[in-house]
């Protein structure tokens, strides 16, 4: 039988390569992660003074304005910023539901005293639904509302935003701020 021998070889090779790619490889990477990049490997977690994990630097939270800077709308299933099930809205550009949802977000921002033109990221849902960032524009647009809600000086809040700017690793990325980090700085934490 011509198939018997190749089948035997195929089985043996599969077992070997299974061990290499499915056991040795992931364990090796996990080991390196724990030794060299322990914080990153476990999710870049943020703790408060008591050591309680409050969030992750990489996962957005569902902040409400205007006392805090708010992040982007989130279309994750169940509830916004559902870190257990990521995803975008998948609404097509011509879908009337998209225009309606953006309109609602705009009205809500308007009620908080934030006026247009509205920064695109502040009124649209991200791909992951967990985007931890907003553009510098979107943060600056919220400055007057946040300053008023907190009874702070506008310039002071603005300076705080500018001190939180990141994202200049490459010339073609926009400047952005991490919303959790910015809000903690606002409270004098972290």
């Amino acid at each position: 039988m011509r198939l018997k021998r190749p089948l035997q070889t195929a089985t043996l090779l599969f077992v070997v390569l299974f061990l290499v790619s499915g056991v040795i490889y992931p364990l090796l990477v996990t080991g390196i992660g724990d030794l060299a990049f322990s914080s990153q490997a476990h999710g870049s977690l943020v703790r408060d003074r008591n050591g309680t994990v409050i969030g992750s630097m990489l996962i957005g939270l569902d902040f409400e304005g205007p006392y805090y800077f708010q992040g982007r709308p989130s279309a994750t299933p169940g509830n916004p910023y559902n870190a257990g099930l990521s995803g975008g809205s998948n609404l097509g550009p011509s879908n009337p539901v998209l225009a309606e949802r953006v309109n609602q977000t705009i009205s809500a921002l308007g009620r908080q005293g934030i006026s247009g033109p509205w920064p695109g990221d502040l009124v649209t849902a991200s791909a992951s639904g967990l985007d931890p960032h907003i553009t510098l524009e979107a943060a600056l647009a919220q400055v007057p509302a946040v300053a008023e809600a907190r009874g702070m000086n506008k310039e002071e809040v603005r300076a705080l935003v500018l001190s939180e700017v990141e994202g200049r690793q490459f010339p073609f990325n926009p400047e952005y701020v991490n919303v959790l980090s910015l809000n903690r700085a606002l409270d004098g934490e972290g």
């Binding site: 999710g43 992750s56 939270l61 569902d62 006392y67 257990g84």
Partner: peptide, 25 residues
């Protein structure tokens, strides 16, 4: 910052009125 662990998913407390999150890892 890409994660690599075998931890079960866990709950993060949230901050400043933002709700706690159960996070997949």
């Amino acid at each position: 910052g890409v994660i690599q662990n075998f931890d079960p998913s866990f709950t993060m407390a949230g901050y400043g009125g933002a709700a706690p999150q159960t996070i997949a890892t």
